[in-house]
Every structure is written in C-alpha cells, then in structure tokens.
Design a protein around this nucleic acid. Structure first.
Lengths: 334, 334
DNA sequence: CTGAAAGCGCTTACAG
DNA sequence: CTGAAAGCGCTTACAG
C-alpha cells in the first residue's frame, strides 16, 4: 500500500503539503494541489485511517446499541442513522446486546479505547450503572432513541408513547369496546410503562378502570401467542379488544384467537405497535401505530453529531406517531 | 485517558515491558507481571486500540456485507458470526448495501484503508468487478455465505440449494400436485438459478416438465403478493402449489390466495424458504425449508479466520437444510 | 503557501 | 527477563 510519503515523493513536495491538500485544500496553491492530486491518482493512494484516527484522537465510528438485531423494527431506524452518519463521514457499528449485559459493556468500552466516538442507545435493557457512569463523563456523547430511562435524563428522540397509547385505546372505545386488555412489553421498560399509563388514563376517562387488565410479554411472536391464549381462554369475562405493544405480539395474538375459534375483528379487535412490513400481510391486516422510524434514526444521529461538535442542541425531541386503521379492529358482531 | 507510559511509570518498568505483559505474559517474570497488572488497575488503563492497530497493521474488524438489513433471515447468521468473531477478538461491522453499488464499494474500500481485515459476503448483488479485483489481491480475505457467484470461485459456506429445491418439489409431487409453480427470487441470482434448476430437474423426473412455470420476485412480502395474484388469477390452468424462494414471499402468496378466495392448503399448497420466525405464526403455518443459519454464520467466520491466519482451510462447505412440514401444504380437496 | 519536526500510543527486533 | 530505540502513517503548530 502506498503511503503519504510515496505521494509526497511523486508530487515533489512534503508529506505535510499532501496532508493539507487533502484536509484543507484551500490552504494549498492551485498548482501544488493539482500535482498532489495527480500523484495520488498515479500511485493509487488512500489514507490509512487508523493512523489518521490515532493522530486526531477520533474514530469516526458511532455505535448503535440494539436489544436484538432480529427485531425488524430497528432496521429502518438504522437506515436513517446511516444516511446522516455517512454524509458526515461517520460509520455505524451495530451493537447487538442480545439481552447480555457483558455485550453492552463491551460496546461501551469501545468509547474509552477510542474505537468509537459516540453511542446511540436504542434499548433500556442494559446495566444502568454503565449509563450513569458514562453520563457523568463530559466526553461521552450518548443519545437515546425510542427508549429511555425514567431516572436518567439523556438526550432523546422518541414519540410520545403515552399519547400513542391513548389514541389506540380511544379508538377502541369509540368502536364500542369496554373490556380492553393490554399486552405490554416488559413491565420494567419505561416506554411500556408510558403506554400502560396512557391505557389506564384513557380507561379512567371513560369510566372503565375496573376493566383494566395488563398481560406482560417480551415483544416477540411467541410471547404474543402465549399471553394471547392466557387472555382469551380465561374463565373470566374475555376481553373484546387487545392492545399490543408490538406487531409481532399482535400477530401472536391473532394465532391464539384463531386457535380458540375467536374471529378477528368480529369477536375480537387487535391493535399492534410499530407498523412493521408484516402488518400489511398478516390475516387480518393489522391496525397499528406507526412510528416515523427513518426520521427517528436521522434525528438521533443528527443530535449526536451536534454533541460531537461540542454544540448545545435541543436535547429532547418528540416526533409524531399515528394510528393506521386496517382490518384487525371493528365493532363487535353478535 | 492514561496511556501505556503512565502504567510503565506506576509499575516502575519500561513501556515495552507493559506491552509484553499484555501481549505475551509468559515472556515476563511473575513479579513484574504482577506489578504491571496492579499498575494497570491503579491508573485505570485500557490500551488505545487505534494505536495498536496502526502498529500491527490490522483492524480486528470484519465486514458482513448484506443486501438488506431489514430481512430477518440475516440476523441469526450475524449472530453466529459474532459469537466466533468476538471470541477471536474481532468485531463485526454490518454493511447494509441496500442494493446500492456505491455502498458496497465503500465497504470494500475499508479493506484498503486498513479499517477492516476481511469481508463475509452475504449477497451476490454487488458489482462483480469489485469482487474480481479483490479476489486477485492476495491480502484480501473474502468469504461468501449462502450466496455465491457462478463465475467467481470464492471460499463458500452454504446449503445445497439445488437439493433443497428438489426436496420441496418432490414433496409436493408426493402430495399429488402436478401444476407446481415457482416464485423465484431475482432471476440473475445464482442461488435462485440453482433452486430453479432443482425445480426443473424434479419436474422432469416426474414427466411434468410441461407444467413448469416460474415467476420472479425479490424475496419481499409485496412481490410475493403481486406475483401470487398474477399466478393465481390467470386464465390458464391455475397452479395447485407454489414453491417460494423466501418465507416473506410465501406469506405474500397467502394473502393473494385469501383475497382470491382460494383456500390453503385445500386448494393451494404453499412452500416457503428460510424458516424465519414468522413462518410459525402466519395462517396457515408455513411449510418451509430451514437453513442452519447460526451455523452458517459461525462457519463462515471460522473460515475467514483461517484465511486471516494464512492457513489453507477447506474452501467450500455445504451444510444441510431440511424441509419443515407445517400446515400450508396438503393434498388437494375437491 | 510550504517544510522540518514533533508526536499520537503502541509494538517489536535487537542487544544485553 | 528487560530496556532503549525505531517506527507504524498520519497531522499540525511553528517558523519562514
């Protein structure tokens, strides 16, 4: 591999000048710049980024920390992040935590070893000690997207989960439903708590508090199916609608209903969350809440870039979600 | 951040000794090693990886090049890759090509700039010039997984797509089907060509060649739905079974059938490919071909590591797939 | 506008 | 077993 020295030799100038022609071309005379560029092309030079990073004490790498890469919800967020990052000369390292604290820790360690410049945190399922410690350090750019911690105030891009939940429940009530259950994600997860608060608030507003019933899943198909069975085959009055905190769980509920011979939406309405690709292709098509995933990714990266430049950006931004009505919800049919 | 100098000072030795205590502890006396380790703990040292990488001329980073990160098929493969990579001290950089040649090129460029040590290629949808050129360079460790090029012989971990396809078609014939269509992925994709060859061979073996009919999709839900409609609403004799090159397309076909009032499996059998999580939760549950995704990821990474160590590993490995029979296939009911 | 020189933090052949 | 020294490839304040 040719180095900057080879270019300097070919161009008949010093390595300093080659470096400047690349980093700050306006500080180099036209003639020299031309010679340098020719030399670069001639010897086939591309800078050794490791050396540059070492010298500049940066890595131009951002870690995107996910709870679970297999959840399709995240892919479009990553995509939005990449668009913005690449344009600014950064690359994204996707960190899949797989609910393993050690993994999360390893990714956090990349910052102290200069292998990453910042983190976009897309999960609250990591050791909070890690986050608290990081938050104290000045040079630890950390941004959250979608998820958040109730007791640690970090820069955040997200939708209003309380409101999104209210909207879903209001809609179900408007269809005449009273026994509306929620199939929540993990109970300790702050976004689920927000959604459950919205659920309770809305039931209360309609004098339906006594009907409140929350089951707990983990966002995946299987838990949707299992909790769906539990909710629907119980002896107590069966819910006529279930609001799920993810589309995968909603599809799991659809399977449970099918198995129990409960027809959707005639005897049961189901609402999902996230509007993943599948929601248009399951049977029936899913009524769900759509988050602007690409925009969330873009804004989160933008926010992190501001932080990296030492600016003081607006730390919290709420993007709007909306309810998409499809075929899995409706009035009860006798 | 403390550097190796700080540790040396605290331990009362040279930086060389600190470095050796870390890299080759057996070359350092017990007493010194102990002092160094104490000093490391005391000053809170972690090595600057950029500097190490520069010195060693490696990055300990492997690029996993995907056609599309939103396809859940890949997540478990990545997972398998990560297990092996992390254990060997490597990290995985996920490169999402999004069918954009410029992106693929950018990721390939990481190798020449010392930002990556090797590539696991999970797509054949990239400029072949890139690959051919890379393949010529000795120091360009490149491994393919799942996908391959028909005219470029690279180290490869994959299933036998021809055989997997034969098995699916044989099974459908055994159920009494004769008009079996295939919903293929992109026609120029070698794995699809293999599968289509298996399809034709099996039809021929059963004297059904005249029934061959191949539609082309792109692996996604939407194309499954659209091509499904086209296959099923045609005036010509409608297929009684469709073999799809992905589960998402199969689910798209299920939707098309539903819309046309064709019941699965009574009037139409559908087979998918990949056994993604969804295939157990759609309606009806999908008969599909399962690939050992985690193992593919592990073996691909293992193969790449061998190459990086300058060894001469077995370049081609075929893992076995198997047909999982669920509810989307059956004998025709009148 | 340009160059000589120092230095980023580490590793490793060499000498002892 | 240990240290002094050179060097990986780049950047940048400094001097001119």
């Amino acid at each position: 591999m040719p180095t900057i020295k080879d270019v300097a030799k070919a161009a008949g100038c010093s390595t300093a000048t080659v470096s400047r022609a690349l980093a700050t071309p306006e500080k180099v005379s036209d003639a020299t710049r031309k010679r340098v560029n020719q030399a670069i092309a001639q010897v086939g030079y591309s800078p050794n980024i490791a050396a540059r990073n070492l010298r500049r004490a940066e890595s131009k790498t951002i870690v995107a920390l996910l709870p679970d890469i297999s959840n399709p919800f995240f892919s479009e967020i990553i995509s939005g992040m990449e668009d913005v990052a690449h344009q600014a000369g950064y690359q994204i390292l996707i960190g899949d935590c797989e609910h393993d604290p050690a993994r999360a820790e390893a990714y956090f360690r990349l910052l102290s070893t200069n292998q990453a410049d910042g983190i976009v945190l897309l999960t609250s399922e990591i050791p909070r000690a890690l986050v608290k410690q990081a938050d104290k350090q000045a040079d630890f750019p950390l941004v959250m997207a979608c998820e958040f911690f109730s007791d640690i105030d970090l820069p955040l891009i997200a939708i209003d989960n309380h409101q999104a939940s209210c909207q879903a429940i209001d809609y179900l009530v408007s269809l005449g439903h009273q026994r509306i259950a929620t199939l929540s994600g993990p109970a300790h997860n702050p976004i689920c708590q927000e959604r459950n608060r919205g659920y309770r608030d809305t039931l209360a507003a309609h004098q339906l508090s006594s009907e409140a019933r929350i089951a707990e899943g983990n966002f995946g198909f299987r838990s949707g199916y299992q909790q769906g069975l539990a909710l629907l085959e119980g002896k107590t009055a069966r819910p006529t609608a279930i609001f799920c905190h993810s589309d995968e769980m909603a599809v799991g509920v659809l399977k449970a209903a099918r198995q129990l011979g409960i027809s959707v939406p005639d005897q049961l309405s189901v609402v999902g969350f996230d509007n993943i690709g599948l929601s248009e292709y399951c049977d029936p098509e899913l009524t769900t809440i759509s988050q602007p995933r690409n925009e969330i990714g873009q804004q989160a990266m933008q926010l992190l870039l501001h932080l990296l430049r030492g600016e003081q950006p607006i730390r919290h931004q709420t993007l709007s979600s909306h309810l998409i009505v499809r075929k899995s919800t409706g009035r009860l049919k006798p």
